[in-house]
Amino acid sequence: MTREEIIQNGTKVYSRPRLLNKNNMHYCPGCSHGVVHKLVAEIIDEMGLEHDAIGIAPVGCAVFAYNYIDIDWAEAAHGRAPALATAISRLRPDKVVFTYQGDGDLAAIGSAETIHACTRGENIVIIMINNGIYGMTGGQMSPCTLEGAKTATTPYGRRHDLNGFPLKVADVVSLLDGTCYVTRQAVHTPGAVRKAKAALKKAFKNAQEKKGTSFVEIVSTCNSGWKMSPEKSNKWMEENMFAHYPLGDLKDTTK
C-alpha cells in the first residue's frame, strides 16, 4: 500500500499541525518546547483562531517561538510578556492573546507583570514552561530550580540558605482572584501530552469567553541544561520535579 492509498482510505490518524510551519526548530533534541509548540498550533487551528490568536514570545529559549507557529506574534522584553498581552487584549478584545514563557522569564524578572496580569484577571492565557533552569543563557539557576540541583550558578547544588527556595508560581497565582484556571501539566508521555492539550484548550476557551486569566504550567525537561540524556531527564523530572511541582489542576472556577 502506498502512502497516498493509506491517506485516501481515511486511515490517517495523525498529521503535522497546519499552523506549525516547516522551519527547523532550534530546540535541543529531547526538549519539551517542540511538543508544547505543536499543541498550541493544533489548538489554535482546531478552535478556528488562526485569524484571531496573537502570541507573545519571551526572552529565553522560546524567544523564537514566532518562527514556528504561523500567526501574528510580538517578542517581549525579558519578563514583560503579560504586560504586552494585557494591552493587546484590552485594545483588541476580539482577539485571543497568549504568552509563552519560561520559568526564568516569568518567575524571576517577570514576576511583577505575571502577578498583576493575573490579579487584574486579564482575559489571556499564560503558558509557563517550567524546566527549572535558564536554558538559553547556558543553564543558570532559575527561581524554580530544585534544591540540590546543580546549575552553572549553583555548581555545588542549590542551597536554600544561599539561594532561597524553589518558587511554586502556579500555587501563587492560584490564590489570586483574577485567575479562573490554574493547572500544572507535563508532556513527557503520550498520556501526559493528551492531558496537557486538554488543559491548554480549556485555557484558550476561557480567554475566548473572557472568563479571566488562565495559567498553564508545563513541568518540562532541559536535558542540555540538566546535563542528562532525554530519557534520563524524563525519569529525573518524574522523580524530583513532580515531587515539588505535582501535576493537576490547582484551580478551576469555570466548572
Binding site: 496573537i54 510580538a74 517581549a76 504586560a83 504586552l84 485594545l91 507583570e113
Partner: peptide
Amino acid sequence: MVVLQAESEVASINMVYGGAAAGKAV
C-alpha cells in the same frame, strides 16, 4: 479609549509596546 493604571513604569512602557505593536495610538 483604554485607560489602565499599571503596576510599574516598566509594565506601563511594555503595555505601550504591546498596544503599539497592535497598531494602536498608545
